[in-house]
Design a protein around this nucleic acid. Structure first.
Lengths: 103, 103
DNA sequence: CTAAGACATGCGTGTCTGCGCATATCTTTA
DNA sequence: TAAAGATATGCGCAGACACGCATGTCTTAG
């Protein structure tokens, strides 16, 4: 395993870690319909403001969301629709397992 | 947020946690071309046998891989091609960020 | 039934992570 | 400039996680 490849897996895992928390998934889901300010996100998700900021910072550090300041508000949005597609695929995998095969 | 939805996010995050480790990604990748025994996986990936078993158990507990015993060997395979698709999507997201936009 | 190979599991430890709380920074309005 | 709103950051702790090592279990060969 080359050094470069090793680092790639490290990076890939790091990105996946971004999804490895329920609150972060809730936040990402709250951004499905477009960008939202932190306050809006807190209202929608019922997550504490400081905690939401921490999770958003993690998502941002992994390139999963981007932010834009407008006045005193900061608006976040999901970086790429591929992110939602990937999450949907995993939901589909989960669904396949729950759905019992026909007898 | 309903109780059910809360649990769904918890479960979804749990599945994502399956990908949140470089060695597990390496193992999943080693299973791209089909099933492999634990010994084969250890050879390919250079992961210690006990450690590989531990990671495989985690992947299995999340429904990401399945196993089948044949004699003294146990063969693992990825549960669904959707899993590789999802991982590829994330790699694409990563690639987009590294690729600099044209000036 | 005994030995050896293949795989799984339990334990101890060092590290990471999520959270609440307090507080700091930035922006607008008075 | 002071105050208030919006967001970010630092700290401490409790729980989770990865790993190495030793050992246990299952299967086939002799």
């Amino acid at each position: 395993m080359s050094e470069v490849r090793e680092e790639l897996y490290q990076l890939h895992a790091s990105v996946c870690k971004g999804f490895a928390d329920p609150k972060r998934l809730i936040l990402i889901n709250a951004l499905r319909d477009g960008e939202r300010s932190v306050t809006e996100l807190c209202e929608i998700t019922q997550i504490q403001q400081a905690n939401a900021s921490q999770h958003l910072a993690i998502l941002k550090s992994k390139g999963l969301v981007t932010s834009r300041r407008e006045g005193q508000r900061v608006y976040y949005k999901v970086t790429s629709s591929k992110i939602n597609e990937a999450l949907d695929l995993l939901l589909a995998v989960m669904a396949e397992q729950i759905t019992l095969p026909a007898i």
